[in-house]
Nucleic acid binder design. Structure first.
Lengths: 326, 326
DNA sequence: TTGAAAGCGCTAACAC
DNA sequence: GTGTTAGCGCTTTCAA
C-alpha cells in the first residue's frame, strides 16, 4: 500500500545524493565501495525499483523491443517470437507483440505507437519488402528485418531459393508435373520460393507452366482454394509444392476432398507440418529453424542497441530437407 | 532526421500555451473551437506525436498491458493472446508478451518489470492458482486472471468441470474402462478437469480407479509417456481422456506405436486438435473459445483501467462438445 | 477559457 | 569521487 520508494528515498536513507545512487545502480564505477554498500542496503531495505518511464524519458530509450509480424498464430512466427523473447528477456528487455495481419495500415499504426514508446529496438517481418527503413531511422531506432528483407537494415532470412530448389527437386524425382502454391509475391519469401521452384524445373529441363502456379496468401483457406483450382485442371498435377505450412494443410484438405486416394498426389511444404498432420511422414518438408531465426535477429538487434554502427549486415539461414516420401 | 516535434513546438506554432495544446489533445473540452482548430493544424503540420514516456511519467500510467502466460507456443494461448491483442489495440494499448514456462521465478521477474513499466493493466494465467493478488494491487495495477483463477481479482475461466463431464460421458457411451491424463493438479484446469472426469464416472456408477489416472504436465512428451504407462497396464483402458491438446497428440503417438489398429482405443481431448491431426474426426474434443476468452479478459481489464471499482467478477465460459466418434 | 509554472522520477553535465 | 542542479516532455494545479 505504501507509495513506491523512489531514488531520492534511497539516497536519503543511504545518506548520499541521488546522483550517487544513480551511479551505483548503473555504472557501479567510480563510487567508493563503502557508499556502494550503503546504497545497495538502502535499496534492498526499501524494496526500491526504478521507474522505467522516468529513466526512459531521460535517456530517450525504453528497455522494450517491438516485434512486428504478420500473425503469431502462424507457428513459424510463434516460434520466432519465442526465440526473440528468450534472448531479449535475458538482457532485461520486455517484448511488445504487434500483429499486422499483412495489413500495411496496422503495421504503420503499430510502428507509430512503438516510436511513441521510445522502444529500444525493433524486429520486423514487413508487410511489404519495399518498406522504407528511413521512417524508423528518423527516430533513430535500430531495426532488424526478419524472414523478409528491408532496405538498409540488418536482416536475417532463410535461404528461400535453395530451400525451394531442394523441395521441388525431391518432388521431381518421382513426378514430372509439379505445381506450386506460393505466398504473396510482394513478399520476398513468396517470390524467392517461386524462383527456387522455377530453377529446380529448369535444372531438369522442364518448362515452367503458368497454369501450375497459383499465388495465394499463406492462409489455410488460401491454400485450400488454390489446390482446388489446380485439381480442377484438365491435366492434374502429380505433385504440389506449397509455400508454407498453412497452405499445405489447406491443400491437404482439398486433396482429400477430391481424391479417393490422397496419396496419388505428392505434397510438399516449405515449412514443417505438425507430426500429427502427417503421421506417415509422406509430405516433403524443410526443417525451418524459426526459433533460431528469432535468436539471431534479437542478437543483432541487441548489438545495434548497444551502439554497433557498422553497415547493414545480412544473415542467411539454411534449411534442411526433412522428410522423404516413401 | 529532424528532431521530433514536441508539445511546445506545437504550442508555439499555434500561438497558444502548452497547457492548451495538452487540453486539446486530451479533453477537447473547454477550449475555444478556434484554438482547437489552430492546435490541430499545427499538430498535423509538424507531424506531432506525443511521447508516451513523458505522459506516463506524469500520469503514472502507460498505455501498455502485460500478458503473462505459460507459453505462446501452446495454441490455446496463441489464440488467447490474439484475442487480447485485438481488443486492446483498438483501444490504443500495446501488449507486452511474457512467457513464464510454468516457472514461478520467471513469472515474478516479469511482474516486476511490468510494474517498472507502469503498465496500465495485466492479464495473467498464473503459474500457481494460489498466487497472491496482493503484490500487484500494491502497485495499484488492475489484474485479470484468465484460464486459471486467482484470489481477489476478476477472472475469466472455462467451465472445466462441465466440459470434462461432457467429454468423459461421451467416451463412456462406448467404453467402460476410461482413463485420464491430466495436467498438473496445482493448476485449476488440471484439478477441475479431473473432478469432471470423476463425476462422469460416478454418474454412471463406475468407481474411480487410481491406476487409470495419470498426472502429466500438459506437454506432448508428457502425454506420450503417460499414455505408454496406461497402455502397459495389464488391463488396458478402452478410452483415454487427455486434459489438453498437446498431451492428446502425445497419446496418439504412443497409441500408434503400441497398437496395430489405433482406433481400438477411443481418444478424447479437452482442447481441439488441428484438423489435419484428426482428419477422420474420430477424437472427441471440445470447442474451446480461446480467442473469446482473451477478448473477455481484455474487456474486463479495460473496464478496470477506466476506473471500474466493483468487487471481483468472474466469468465462466462454456465449452461445447465438438466431434463425435464414428 | 487560457496561461504560467510546478513538478512526475530519473540521469548527466558541471562543479567541487 | 561526490553533490548540485538542470532538464527529458508532458499534465495539472492555480491564477488571471
Amino acid at each position: 500500500m505504501a507509495a513506491r520508494a523512489k531514488l531520492s528515498d534511497v539516497a536519503r536513507l543511504a545518506g548520499v545524493s541521488t546522483a550517487t545512487v544513480s551511479r551505483v545502480l548503473n555504472d557501479n564505477d567510480r563510487v567508493a565501495p563503502e557508499l556502494v554498500e550503503r546504497v545497495l542496503k538502502a535499496k534492498a531495505e526499501l524494496g526500491y525499483r526504478y521507474n522505467s518511464l522516468a529513466r526512459g524519458l531521460r535517456t530517450r530509450a525504453n528497455a522494450v523491443v517491438g516485434v512486428v509480424i504478420p500473425d503469431v498464430t502462424n507457428p513459424f512466427f510463434t516460434d520466432l517470437v519465442r526465440g526473440i523473447e528468450d534472448l531479449v528477456r535475458e538482457n532485461g528487455y520486455l517484448l511488445v507483440l504487434c500483429n499486422t495481419d499483412e495489413t500495411a495500415a496496422k503495421e504503420e499504426a503499430y510502428l507509430e505507437l512503438l516510436v511513441d514508446q521510445q522502444v529500444a529496438g525493433l524486429v520486423i517481418a514487413p508487410v511489404r519488402s519495399t518498406i522504407e527503413a528511413a521512417s524508423f531511422d528518423l527516430a533513430g531506432i535500430p531495426v532488424v528485418a526478419v524472414d523478409r528483407t528491408m532496405n538498409g537494415v540488418d536482416t536475417v532470412t532463410l535461404d528461400n531459393v535453395r530451400g525451394a530448389i531442394a523441395v521441388t527437386s525431391r518432388l521431381l524425382e518421382s513426378a514430372r508435373r509439379v505445381a506450386t502454391i506460393t505466398g504473396p509475391l510482394v513478399t520476398t519469401t513468396g517470390s524467392e520460393r517461386l524462383v527456387g521452384y522455377r530453377r529446380a524445373l529448369s535444372d531438369v529441363g522442364i518448362d515452367f507452366e503458368p497454369e501450375l502456379f497459383v499465388e495465394a496468401d499463406y492462409s489455410e483457406s488460401g491454400g485450400y482454394a488454390a489446390a482446388h483450382r489446380l485439381l480442377a485442371l484438365e491435366e492434374r498435377p502429380e505433385a504440389i509444392f506449397c509455400g508454407n505450412h498453412a497452405m499445405a494443410l489447406g491443400a491437404m484438405r482439398a486433396i482429400s476432398e477430391v481424391l479417393d486416394d490422397p496419396s496419388e498426389i505428392a505434397l510438399a511444404s516449405f515449412e514443417p507440418l505438425p507430426w500429427a498432420a502427417d503421421p506417415g511422414g509422406r509430405v516433403v518438408t524443410l526443417a525451418v529453424p524459426s526459433y533460431e531465426l528469432g535468436q539471431r535477429a534479437a542478437q543483432m538487434l541487441l548489438e545495434r542497441i548497444r551502439g554497433f554502427e557498422g553497415p547493414a549486415r545480412s544473415i542467411v539461414v539454411q534449411t534442411e530437407l526433412l522428410r522423404t516420401p516413401r
